[in-house]
């Protein structure tokens, strides 16, 4: 009678423990299956890794550049070139008035002589300069804002106002190139996002296609499993885990590629930074980035596999 009763109801479902056991089993067996075709699968993983390393690397570069521009933002300054024919008293008077400006912080005056000396030192054109009969340089006043965190617009307004002084010939805010630099960083950020979206799609397609081929290869096996009563979930599961592994391994390899690249770039970057008198170093991806990449890889893997499985499994039926 027991057999009859069991037969009469068509209900599936597993005990939680059995369910967990089965997932664990498939978790490892799907990894084992990847090892069975190491070369082909490694190439798939490598393609995924490169597709993930590219936007991640670019993100890292942009991140570092942003850090660089943050450093410089505090260094906003303006240069006032004074009229050529000013005598020292008028210069001194102007300096007094500038010191009283509440928004002006640090102030540095360079006489034409000092300016020339500095120019000689840094321009590398000492020989050419010594040919000059008289000093062509005006008095120069370097200004820093009182509030180093002053917004670019307000600082620009201040410089505009200083330009109105009759003694001032030209006023140049050194913000411009910081802003341009930031503009470029923003452009790069947007580019990175687009690239990341496109390459995520590529990862999805690579994994989906790999799983699709895997399903085709195992068509006969799927038919037999369906024949003995394997549910869709049962058949789907190993493929989803396989996709998960592809994604996770791809993301891991991408991080390794990234670390390798950083390692190779470290020397040249710090040499370049030293030449610019900066202590700048490339920062490695933080734990948040690592986690995000592993998570993104795994999810893309599962999603790619799911799409492939959804398309394919329906049509494979035993005959």
């Amino acid at each position: 009678m027991n057999r009859r009763r069991r037969a009469a109801r068509l209900q599936g479902g597993l005990q939680p423990r059995a369910w967990l056991m089965r997932h664990l089993q498939v978790f490892f067996s799907s990894l084992g299956r990847l090892w069975q075709r190491p070369l082909g699968n490694f190439m798939s993983v490598l393609v995924i890794a490169i597709a993930m390393a590219l936007p991640a690397g670019l993100h890292l570069v942009v991140d570092n550049l942003e850090r660089l521009s943050d450093d410089w933002e505090g260094a906003a300054s303006a240069t006032l070139f004074l009229q050529q024919a000013l005598d020292d008293a008028k210069v001194e008077a102007l300096l007094q008035r500038l010191r009283r400006e509440p928004q002006v912080g640090e102030l540095k005056h360079l006489t034409p002589g000092q300016a020339l000396a500095e120019f000689r030192r840094y321009s590398g054109m000492a020989d050419a300069i010594s040919l000059l009969e008289e000093n062509p340089l005006p008095h120069v006043v370097l200004i820093r804002p009182a509030d180093p965190g002053i917004p670019a617009e307000r600082f620009r307004a201040l410089v505009e106002r200083l330009r109105e002084y009759p003694e001032v010939e030209r006023a140049v805010a050194d913000l411009q190139w910081v802003e341009r630099f930031q503009g470029m960083v923003h452009l790069l950020q947007r580019g990175t996002t687009i690239l990341a979206a496109l390459l995520s799609l590529a990862v999805l397609l690579v994994i989906g296609n790999t799983i699709r081929l895997e399903i085709q290869n195992r068509r006969q096996e799927i038919e037999i499993v369906k024949l003995v009563g394997g549910s869709h979930a049962f058949i789907r599961r190993p493929f989803l885990y396989e996709g998960f592994w592809y994604g996770l391994l791809g993301a891991t390899l991408a991080l390794l590629l990234l670390s390798l690249s950083l390692f190779l770039l470290h020397g040249p970057v710090s040499r370049l930074a030293r030449l610019y008198g900066s202590g700048f170093t490339l920062e490695s991806p933080g734990p948040a980035v690592v986690l995000a990449m592993l998570l993104a890889g795994s999810l893309l893997g599962i999603l790619g596999a799911w799409i492939a499985v959804r398309q394919q499994l329906q049509e494979i039926e035993p005959t």
Binding site: L10, Q11, Q220, E221, G229
Partner: peptide
């Protein structure tokens, strides 16, 4: 076995197949 096969849908199909053992001339082994 008491089931009207017309009423067995896609979801119940695997459960139904577990009640029927099938043997083929070509064995169909993995």
């Amino acid at each position: 076995n008491g089931h009207n096969l017309a009423r067995i849908g896609r979801r119940q199909l695997p459960l139904f197949r577990r009640q029927v053992g099938m043997i083929f001339q070509d064995h169909r082994l993995l």
